[in-house]
Design a protein around this nucleic acid. Structure first.
Lengths: 192, 192
DNA sequence: ACATTACCAGACAGATCGGTCTAGGTTGTC
DNA sequence: GACAACCTAGACCGATCTGTCTGGTAATGT
């Protein structure tokens, strides 16, 4: 027996190169648009080596998205003292990313656009990310003593998605501040 | 001379069938995932006929998105007496759509996910839609006498995008009400 | 009567897709 | 010295991709 069903196999230079290349290409150009031949060529890896580490393209795609989860968790980690500050810091971080050159929207939204079947492994990874993000927000709202953390977390999740989309399709410079001020207003307990 | 550069050609039963089929398939399964052969087979149209009406697949994709614009403009048209009611009605309409079976997110966001190049004709159509939507919101906010219509329109656009994403990837039933209450709070002039 | 237009059926071309396979080279460990 | 793990290079497979082309039928309008 090797190890697990969805074998992560062992870490190796070749595997790392493939994953890095996939990360760049899939995100920048889309998943269906990037073929295996292209990835192995740019990663400088033999085809047999690729299929040794990733039994199928779907496995690579899932690994790519799992990589994205850890990257996002690292970059958009809550910073600040109070829960409110932490929430705002998350959106500030996202706002910054959207302005960087090469920003191409949310990797998970984009991936889901190409994989309609909710039961597809790719969508499972997307679900994992979204559940984690919503849960993080909800816990921060609870810590802030917010009266309706569940509903407010959904509002904030919507704003995050909207910011990611706008950062890709519209003007990132104006979308960031607008969304951030919407966030501060929504996490303040409503008067009405 | 025929008529315009991006020749819409003449309306015809075969063309109509192709466009309807493309509308259903592209939206449900993604654009790269659906081939020309599949479309002409399900539309019951000869290949030569297809390429007679649409010089390339890209032309069909653009026609598909333009069709989506008119559909959305029809369904999400503002209803109500006051500008505030009209804005809320738009989000109610979207909230309803997201709950319907077969909802697969925003056709424009999904299309943009597959077409990274901002200069691509597909993205131009996406831009057209987004500009129209944002402009509609802004005008309603101006009519409502809102102090900051421009920034608020961006907030609402983000919420719309977030709602469309959540309706596809998360639970549509909970996302709708949450976003709607966020909208009512944001269009009320802020106390701060 | 004639030309145009719209349509169908389907072969064909060249490229690319995901994936398998053979054959051999290097490294490290028991 | 044997074995396994990891690696390269590239031929090969069947399927599918967009797009072209031939050839023929039916309707329409002047």
């Amino acid at each position: 027996m090797t190890s697990s069903t969805v074998a992560p196999r062992r870490e190796s230079p070749a595997r790392r190169r493939v994953l890095d290349t996939a990360l760049a290409l899939f995100y920048a150009e889309g998943i269906h648009a990037v073929g295996i031949d292209r990835i192995i060529a740019e990663a400088g890896v033999a085809k047999a080596t690729f299929y040794h580490h990733f039994p199928s393209k779907d496995d690579l795609i899932c690994a790519y998205l799992e990589e994205q989860i850890t990257l996002v968790q690292g970059h958009a980690a809550p910073r600040g003292d109070t829960p409110e500050e932490k929430i705002v810091s998350v959106f500030e971080a996202i706002g910054e990313i959207t302005c960087k050159p090469g920003f191409r929207g949310c990797a998970f939204i984009n991936a889901a656009a190409e994989y309609p079947d909710p039961d597809h492994p790719v969508r499972r990874v997307v679900d994992t990310f979204r559940w984690w993000f919503r849960d993080t927000l909800e816990k921060l709202l609870v810590a802030a003593g917010h009266p309706d953390p569940e509903c407010t977390a959904l509002m904030l999740l919507a704003l995050r998605d909207g910011l990611a989309v706008a950062g890709d399709l519209d003007d990132p410079a104006t979308a960031g501040p607008a969304v951030r001020s919407a966030v501060t207003r929504l996490i303040a307990p409503s008067a009405a």
